[in-house]
C-alpha cells in the first residue's frame, strides 16, 4: 500500500494551516483594531476563495506563480527556485483556500469580546499589542482555535487549485484527494477506498472533537467562568 499521499497531505495541510493561522489571526486583529482604508475591499479579496470555483483560484495562482508571473519570475531569478509542480505549490493552494475560514472565525471571535474589556485595558496603560495578547486573544481563543481546525480540514481536502498548480506527481505532489480521484478513475477502488476512509475518519474526529469541546466551553460559560461568547466564531461560520 502506498502511504505517500497521506504523508504529503499531512505535511502540506500542517504547514499551510500554520501560515494561515498566523496571517489570518493577524489580519483579523488589524481589521478589528485599526481603521484601515479600503477595509471592505480587502475583506472581499480575502473572502473570495470561499465562493470561487477552485479551478478559478488555480488559474489565478497559475498566472502569479508561473515562470512569467510576478512572484514566479522573482523566485526563479533571485532564488533559482521553480515553485510550480512542487509540494510548495500545494501548500500555496491550500493556504489560499483555507485563509478565509481562519480569518472569519478569528474575526468573529474578536468581535464577541465585550469592547469595554479592551477599553479598560487601554485606560490601564496597555498598548494595542498588549491589549491583544492579554485580553482580546485569551477571551477569543475558542473562535481562533475553531478557525485553525476548519482551516486544517479545508487544506486537507483541497483538490482543484492543487491539481492546477502542483500537478499530480505520485510521491511528490499527489495529495490524498488527487490520489483518490486518479485511483477511482483507473478503477483501483481498493486504493481509493482506503484513502477515502482515512479522510472520513480524520474529518469526523476533527468535527466531533470540536463540537464536544465547544459544547463543554459553552457549558462552563453558562456557569459563569471564562470569557465572552466562546464558540460563536465557529457557529457563525457554520450558519
Amino acid at each position: 500500500m502506498d502511504l505517500s499521499p497521506i504523508v504529503i497531505s499531512l505535511k502540506v495541510a500542517l504547514i499551510s494551516t500554520v501560515i494561515a493561522a498566523v496571517t489570518g489571526t493577524g489580519a483579523a486583529w488589524a481589521m478589528h483594531v485599526f481603521r484601515i482604508p479600503g477595509k471592505n475591499l480587502l475583506e472581499t479579496v480575502i473572502g473570495l476563495p470561499l465562493v470561487l470555483p477552485p479551478t478559478v483560484i488555480g488559474f489565478g495562482l497559475l498566472l502569479v506563480f508561473s515562470r512569467n508571473g510576478i512572484i514566479g519570475s522573482f523566485l526563479e531569478d533571485k532564488l533559482h527556485f521553480q515553485v510550480m509542480f512542487t509540494w510548495w505549490a500545494a501548500v500555496i493552494a491550500s493556504f489560499v483556500v483555507s485563509l478565509p475560514l481562519m480569518y472569519r472565525s478569528a474575526k468573529a471571535g474578536f468581535e464577541s469580546v465585550d469592547k469595554n474589556y479592551e477599553r479598560a485595558a487601554r485606560t490601564l496603560g496597555s498598548s494595542e499589542w498588549r491589549v491583544f495578547y492579554t485580553v482580546t486573544l485569551p477571551l477569543a481563543w475558542p473562535g481562533v482555535l475553531a478557525g485553525v481546525f476548519l482551516a486544517f480540514a479545508r487544506a486537507l481536502g483541497e483538490f482543484g487549485a492543487t491539481l492546477m498548480l502542483a500537478g499530480n506527481i505520485p510521491g511528490q505532489t499527489q495529495t490524498i484527494p488527487l490520489a483518490i480521484y486518479f485511483a477511482a478513475e483507473s478503477g483501483d477502488l481498493g486504493a481509493a477506498g482506503y484513502l477515502v476512509s482515512f479522510i472520513l475518519v480524520v474529518s469526523f474526529l476533527i468535527t466531533y472533537s470540536l463540537n464536544t469541546w465547544l459544547g463543554r466551553i459553552n457549558g462552563v460559560i453558562r456557569l459563569g467562568r471564562g470569557g465572552g461568547n466562546a464558540g460563536s466564531g465557529y457557529q457563525k461560520i457554520l450558519t
Binding site: Y117, A120, P138, G226, G227
Partner: peptide, 9 residues
C-alpha cells in the same frame, strides 16, 4: 466602567 469590565479570565 458601568459594567465594571473586570477581566473574566
Amino acid at each position: 466602567f458601568q459594567d465594571y469590565a473586570l477581566f473574566p479570565h
